[in-house]
Each structure stands twice: as C-alpha cells, then as structure tokens.
C-alpha cells in the first residue's frame, strides 16, 4: 500500500504558504500528522462555545452584526423539488433581500445544485453575487470519483464561482485518509479558478477530534473553505464544531501563512444563532475572518429572521413574518 498523495507544504515542513505539488510517500505520514494534532476535549470545547454564546450583543453592535451576517449568507436551496422558478425567486431575494429597504446589503452567494447553476448565473447577472454549487454527488458523496469530477466540471462550466464538495466520510472513518485527500485535490484541480469549499459533514464524523483532523486534511489538500455540513444530516452546524474548525484555520494560517475560510451550514435559523457565530469568529479566529470572503453562513430561513430583527432595530417595534417575502 503506497498511496501517493500530493501534499500542501506547511511551515513545519517547508516554505510558508506555498501550495506545492511536492510528492510524498504520504498516506502514512498524513495519518501520523493528523493523529499528532492536539486532541479536542468535547466538554471543554462545548463549555467555551456556550460561554461565547452568552455574549450580549446589543444596539449598535447588533445592527452591525445583522448587516454583516446578511452579507455572509450563502442563500441556499437544495431540494429534490428545486425548479428554475424556485431558483430565480431565490436569486431575486439574494440581490434585494428587503425590497422595501435599499440599505439592506445583498447576500454573499446563492447555493444550488449543479444542474441549476446556469439558471442562477443568469438570474444574478450584474448583481455581483456569486453562484455556489454543491457537487461531488452531494450530499452523500457516494459515487465514483469520475462522476464527482464530472459533476464539478459541469458546475464550473455553467459558471459556478464556488464549489461545495463533500468528503468521503466512509473513507475517512475507515481510515483511508489518502483517498479523502486525493479526492479533494482532484476536485480542486477540476475547480480551476472556482473556490473550493470542502464539506466535512461533521454530524457523521461524530467526534471533535475527527473534526479537527478532517479540517487539517481538507486544508492541506487545498480547500479554500471548510464547511461543516450538507444540511441533510443531523446534527448540522453547531457552535462547538465551528469553534474547532475556527481553531483549525487559525492554527493553519499561523503555520503556513495561508488563510482558509469557514462556513457553518444547516440549522442556523435565527439572528441570535447568527450573532453567536460571529462572536465565535471574532474571539477564536479573529477579526481577519469577519468578512464574507472568509466566513459564510449556509442558510435559507435565516435571512428573513435577520431582516425582521433589522427592522425592529430601525423602527423600534417588533415585526412579523408577513412583512417579509417567502421565496
């Protein structure tokens, strides 16, 4: 067994920041490296996340946080019943979340299945909003590599600026880390200039140690973003999982100089949830990550709650769901 993998050089091993194609006889070394990462104590991580969740973000800080959160949303529809009409409606919402208030920022991206990328690209033309496409046999990832690559190439060809791939959790849990690594590098290559978000599906990785290892694996394989979940598995994004991933990107940048983004996705429904994630970013990875370039929130219903809270701040009265469009 000598899986040959390509290896992202880190400061520990070489020049900072280069994504090289240095070849190492590497599955064993990769495994040793990932196992050598400091462990994560779940109780401690949960306690830290809970404590940050108790931060009280009020008044001006809340207003800033809401706008920031809106600008970080990857507005998402990933249903079997998705149609061009549904996608076009979502795109309209993305570009102008609150038609009655022009000061509301637009969202970061619209996230759809690969076969609807062209619809979204056309709908968003001129808005500056990118299209993200899930790919690689989302959400299970259970398909031959060639199918995953074809999926990816099709999405990129249709104009996707970002690809949200899923890792092979089966291979990860079976210990075949080389396979997971190789798939990511292959998809990264297929992406061309499109940004690659790597979905770890942390709900299936189960332990926070696995989350940390999978984060490092994905980053070393070339991920531009690491993302918690597909939204199809429960639990999806959680604060402790996101905390561990934020620690990983922080440490990875310290070691290599390369910054990687983070995207929690699934289960983030309220403004309170979103603000908690922003606090987590602020006090873990730091302010450098507090932009849509480096942090995204994968969500659908969240946007309307953000809008509702935003209006409460501007009008002083509580609003209701009938005043915001359901798209």
């Amino acid at each position: 067994m000598s899986t040959t993998i390509r290896f992202v050089r880190t400061a520990r091993f070489g020049d900072a920041g280069e994504v090289s194609t240095e070849t190492l006889n590497g599955a064993a070394e990769l495994r040793a490296f990932l196992r050598g990462l400091p462990g994560v104590d779940r109780v401690g991580a949960e306690e830290r996340a809970a404590r940050l969740a108790s931060r009280s973000i009020k008044t001006t800080a809340k207003a800033e946080a809401i706008d920031l959160a809106i600008s970080m949303v990857d507005l998402t529809t990933l249903e079997g019943a998705d149609t061009p009409g549904k996608v076009r409606a979502l795109c309209a919402k993305a570009a102008r979340p609150d038609p009655s208030d022009g000061t509301v920022p637009k969202v970061a991206a619209v996230c759809v299945y690969s076969d609807l990328v062209d619809v979204a690209v056309r709908a968003l033309a001129g808005t500056g909003i990118g299209v993200a496409s899930v790919a690689t046999s989302f959400p299970s990832g259970r398909a031959p590599l060639e199918a995953k690559l074809a999926d990816t190439r099709a999405a990129v060809a249709a104009g996707a600026a970002e690809i949200d791939m899923v890792i092979d959790r089966g291979a990860f849990l079976a210990g075949d880390l080389g396979k997971v690594f190789d798939e990511i590098t292959a998809v990264k290559e297929a992406c061309g200039t499109a940004h690659l978000k790597v979905i770890l599906e942390t709900g299936e990785l189960a332990t926070l140690d696995n989350v940390r290892r999978a984060s490092w694996l994905a980053m070393r394989a070339g991920a531009d973003f690491i993302k918690t979940s597909t939204g199809k598995v429960s639990p999806a994004a959680t604060l402790p999982v996101t905390l561990v991933m934020l620690e990983a990107v922080r440490d990875y940048r310290a070691a290599t100089g390369r910054q990687v983004g983070v995207k929690p996705a699934g289960g983030i429904r309220t403004t309170k949830d979103a603000v908690r994630y922003l606090v987590l970013v602020n006090e873990t990875a730091g302010p450098d990550w507090l932009t849509p370039e480096w942090f995204r929130l994968g969500a659908s219903s969240l946007l309307n709650d953000l809008l509702m809270q935003r209006r409460k701040l501007s009008t002083g009265v509580y609003s209701g769901p009938d005043y915001f469009t359901l798209d």
């Binding site: 931060r55 009280s56 973000i57 009020k58 008044t59 001006t60 800080a61 809340k62 800033e64 946080a65 920031l68 922003l278 606090v279 602020n282 302010p287 507090l290 932009t291």
Partner: peptide, 9 residues
C-alpha cells in the same frame, strides 16, 4: 472588520 461589542449593562 472590527466587531465592537456595545455596552450591555
């Protein structure tokens, strides 16, 4: 960006 927490007394 700098995320300043407003006073929350």
């Amino acid at each position: 960006m700098v995320f300043e927490y407003a006073p929350a007394p």
